[in-house]
Amino acid sequence: MSAYTVEIRVMPRASLLDPQGQAVQHALQALGFAEVANVRAGKHLVLQVQASTREEAATKARTMCDRLLANPVTEDYECSVSQ
């Protein structure tokens, strides 16, 4: 067993309204960043996971996402594993 760092990015599904992202976009534009378009806000989780292989850590992380960390109705997720 060794320790892996799993980084998980959870984002609101692209087809759904993301009012938080819109509010950030409007605030950036109000600050003069007129070049900003289509801001979306999600969550970034960093986990320390004990596993025997990198693949096992990734599989565990996906199970965690499916069961708790992401809502399958409204969110998509991506996991990346490093040692």
Partner: peptide, 17 residues
């Protein structure tokens, strides 16, 4: 109940925040 899968769908942040 939505999170538990006993009802369909989900509840998200109000459109007006």
């Amino acid at each position: 109940l939505c999170e538990a899968g006993l009802l369909p769908g989900a509840l998200m942040r109000n459109a007006g925040l």
